[in-house]
Nucleic acid binder design. Structure first.
Length: 481
DNA sequence: GGGCAAATAT
DNA sequence: CATATTTGCC
């Protein structure tokens, strides 16, 4: 498919400014203010403020440096070191827009894309489609290779040749001079603290044939548009969560058409094969992209317009069952509620909100199951809520038990009882202590100003220790908290 | 998987 | 700042 960035963006602009959007659905109005002026100008697009004011060409890139640390540039935190200025740059680009809040890689990618486009137009009317496809393909293979290489030799990989790098020597080292190599190593080492970024090969050399002379740009462009295959993106390793948060969040909340996704999968397979043969490294399983450093290395080298549009389209925010009087509407929770045109796919599972209805179901299930069987998995199945995970339940159960324990403990003060202390319950009797009287745990919702917890409030101690978790083993007993 | 507690998100 | 949820661990 022919790529037409202008059309893609303009098409998107078509629904901009005055377009109505549904706040309830969490859709952010896509206005031209979301597009950095520089980019808009490059694409011949209008901006909210009229003619785009040529921004004092920000120091976008320093090819040499960028190239020397090609393999490490996926880390947003490193961008600042190359004049990309992170938030500062964003602010400069468009102080009043949402842009300031977007991940730099995103803006950078766009800026890079536009810049390159202008350049190309001046020189030769080469097909942009071919250009991007080629670039994406190369980058794609490279990315996959990087991952594969990292997996093969995570701790020592220091020189990984690019699959499309013709000048790389065959002995595994690159054609760089020792000084270049030193600098590369230094840069990479100095700017990378820990985590995958480091292991992804700091000394990778970009191919000179890349359309985008600055591989960093392509890398970012790629990162900005690529999407994980899984519907649920795991968080990056804790060690560098803060560093990569922007990317994780970004890629997690944007979606792209399923067809593009499929194409990406196919492309990934191809690239994987290419990378494998080129490097001799085993190809990392596709699942490796989950929670991996790369937001997803399955970008399709085709139909970039779709990806572009998708990249700009925020995925609906978590759609939680409305806490109305009803109770039948909580058959499913979160995820993929984006009812736009069915062309997108939610990536990240939204934070679950335990609405009163949901909590009620939870309690019902718990009571029905009884102390002994009221464990996460069982409860989850009993509740039978689409999208609800065992983890969700486990977490809620934990809190639930804690509250009960607390209540039990507090009320125990005056009329001590044998069973109140969660230390150890024995009889299986209290299994069903009047479920009816128990459900009113549900209380305030929206009471006061803040969000009230379904479990908060004067939790009625009515039903005895229905759920005093079998105090593990520790002496932590059931008291304390 | 269950249960906890630390880490995060709100 | 206090909670509500999610994650990481054992």
């Amino acid at each position: 498919m022919a790529y037409d960035a202008v059309q893609a963006l303009q098409g998107f602009y078509g629904i901009k400014e005055d377009a109505s959007f549904d706040p309830a659905a969490g859709l952010v109005p896509l206005t031209s203010s979301l597009i950095p002026p520089l980019v808009a100008q490059a694409f011949g697009l209008p901006t909210l403020g009229g003619a785009p004011t040529p921004q004092p060409q920000p120091t976008l890139a320093q090819p040499q440096h960028a190239q020397s640390v090609y393999g490490t540039m996926m880390n947003p935190a490193l961008m600042g070191a190359f004049g990309f200025g992170g938030a500062q740059y964003a602010a400069t680009m468009h102080p009043q827009s949402h842009v300031a809040g977007l991940p730099m890689g995103y803006l950078q990618a766009l800026a890079a894309a536009s810049q390159h486009r202008q350049q190309q137009q001046q020189q030769q009317q080469q097909s942009t489609a071919a250009l991007l496809a080629q670039t994406a393909g190369a980058l794609h293979a490279h990315t996959a290779a990087l991952a594969a290489a990292a997996r093969a030799a995570p701790a020592t990989s220091s020189a990984i040749s690019h699959p499309l790098m013709p000048t790389a020597s065959q002995d595994g080292t690159t054609g760089r001079t020792s000084s270049e190599q030193d600098r590369t190593t230094t840069n990479a080492t100095a700017r990378t603290s820990s985590g995958p970024p480091t292991s992804l090969g700091a000394a990778v050399r970009p191919t000179p044939s890349l359309p985008f002379q600055n591989p960093l740009m392509m890398q970012n462009l790629y990162a900005a548009f690529a999407q994980p295959h899984s519907a649920y993106v795991q968080s990056p390793a804790t060690s560098f969560t803060s560093t990569l948060a922007p990317y994780a969040v970004h890629s997690a909340y944007y979606a792209r058409p399923p067809d593009a996704n499929a194409a990406a999968m196919a492309a990934a397979a191809a690239a994987a094969a290419a990378a494998t043969s080129a490097y001799g490294y085993p190809q990392a399983p596709s699942s490796a992209c989950n929670g991996a450093f790369h937001p997803g290395y399955g970008a399709a080298p085709v139909d970039y317009s779709a990806a572009l549009a998708a990249a700009y389209r925020p995925v609906a925010a978590p759609v939680m069952p409305a806490p109305s009087s009803g109770q039948q509407q909580c058959q499913s929770v979160g995820e993929e509620e984006y009812a736009d045109d069915g062309s997108t796919r939610a990536i990240k599972r939204p934070r679950l909100v335990w609405t009163p209805q949901l909590h009620k179901k939870f309690e019902t299930a718990v009571h029905k199951l009884g102390v002994e069987k009221a464990v996460p998995k069982n409860i989850m199945q009993e509740m039978n809520i689409d999208g609800l995970t065992r983890e969700n339940v486990a977490s809620h159960l934990q809190k639930y038990r804690m509250l009960r324990r607390r209540d039990a403990t507090s009320s125990e003060g005056r009329d001590s009882d044998s069973r109140t202390a969660g230390t150890k319950r024995s009889e299986p009797e209290s299994t069903r202590p009047a479920p009816a009287a128990t459900t009113q745990t549900t209380s305030t919702l929206g009471g006061g100003g803040g969000a009230a917890s379904v479990m908060t409030g004067p939790a009625p101690v009515s039903s005895p220790a229905v759920l005093l978790a079998p105090a593990p083993s520790s002496s932590t007993a059931a008291v304390a908290m």
